[in-house]
Amino acid sequence: MAHTPAIPLQARNMWRYLPRGGWLLVAPLMVLVLGLFLGPLTNIMVISVTDPKPGLGNYAALFQSDALGGILWTTLRVCVLTTAISVTLGYCIAHAMIHALARERNWMLSLLLVSFWISVLVRTFSWLMLLGRNGLVNNGLEAIGLITQPIEFMRNELGVLIGMVHYMVPYAVLPLLASMQTIDARVLAASRNLGASPAQTFWRVYLPLTRPGLVAAALLVFILSLGFYVTPAILGGGKVLMVAEYISVQILVTLRWGTAAMLAVLMLGGVLGLLFVMSRFMKLSTVFGGTKP
């Protein structure tokens, strides 16, 4: 235990008489978040119905403009695909980790967390090097004679998907791990003893038991994908326009705050709605704090 400096007597006395309640300790962060975050967020919601003129004009544009519809459709499609692939891959990893020996599990967890922590910019840059026309993947495939023409990985949805899945898999694994840890191994043993094959035990006992984790993982990945900016912007090369990038163009280039705010409100509604659904399946704190094995 580190030596803690003595506190001046006066301060000590002052603290002794302060109310014991915790609100005093909560207040500083609360004030900061209210003033700098929740307040301005409300302001964005207001802008969506007041800019450029009061009314629901920005929302009506959703049904009139083909461009907006196309962007929403692209976003949904990419997010659904990313979620499906990431959760499937994440399930394989989580399942293998749970059944590995402690030593091996620690190694796997380390790999997972390191990838979790590597900057998204570094990872996107690496994919740019790997997937370009003259990238490592195309050159490699050409060298071994599998392809004669370079495959177009970038500036299309394929590249965006690869980059996004690569980013999201660790987010899918963590809630799945948390959920798999709670499964009582005796249930599986019982299933085997009652004559079920390993495959039957997996599909009919294990998989249904992990459903809360699956739902939580899918919702988490979907929520994060909805607002993902960096990877689609770089690997999509302007060809795969998703909501987050479109919002930034509206604000920084065309200065149409109303449209941007309307899209932000839609996104916000989607995210908060999904979080609410998620909270019914899992304690949210286990998802966000669930990095411990």
Binding site: A244, I251, A264, M267
Partner: peptide, 8 residues
């Protein structure tokens, strides 16, 4: 999403 925080 960070893009919304950025707007705010």
């Amino acid at each position: 999403p960070p893009i919304i925080s950025a707007m705010a």
